[in-house]
Design a protein around this nucleic acid. Sequence first.
DNA 1: GGGTAATGTCAAGTATCCTTGTCAAAAAGA
DNA 2: TCTTTTTGACAAGGATACTTGACATTACCC
Lengths: 64, 64
Amino acid sequence: MKNRLKVLRAERDWSQSDLADALDVSRQTINALETGKYDPSLPLAFKIARLFALPIEAIFEDTP
Amino acid sequence: MKNRLKVLRAERDWSQSDLADALDVSRQTINALETGKYDPSLPLAFKIARLFALPIEAIFEDTP
DNA sequence: GGGTAATGTCAAGTATCCTTGTCAAAAAGA
DNA sequence: TCTTTTTGACAAGGATACTTGACATTACCC
C-alpha cells in the first residue's frame, strides 16, 4: 500500500523526527512507513489523517 | 475504536461467515472485530470499506 | 423436543506493527 | 572542508492482528 507521507511532510517542511513527535511514534516507524516496509495500524492511520486533516483514502492508496 | 460492522452486516442479512468469506478472513476475525477484541489492519480496513462501498471513516470511529 | 445455523470464546501458533538502540551514509550549512 | 542534521537501515524484543481447531451457548426451524 502506497502513501503520501513523504510529500505531505515535505509540504510542511517537517523532518521524519518532527512527524514522529507529532504522531507520538518513533522516527524509525515513520521511516519504515515512508520506505514501504509496512503499513500503519488503523489507529495510527487515523492519527495521521487527523494530523493532516485529510481522509485516510487521500493519504493511503489501496493498491498492492 | 468502534465500528459499524454488525449493522452493515445486518442490513445485508449476512452471517459472520458470509462476511468473513467475502473478505477472505476467518470467521473468528470478524467476530473479534465486532466484539471489539482488536482493530483491523489498514489493508483489511480498506477491503471492508471497498466491500461496503463506504469511506473508512464511515465504518470505523476514531474514538478509543 | 430435536436438529441445524449462528455466535461467542479460548488456546496456541504465525505474521505484522512498533519499540529502543545503534550505526552508516547522504544532505545541508557554515 | 568540517560539522550537524537528516535519512536509511538492522537487530532484538514487546504488542497487536490473524490463523486453525475446538467447544459451548444461543437462535431458529421442523
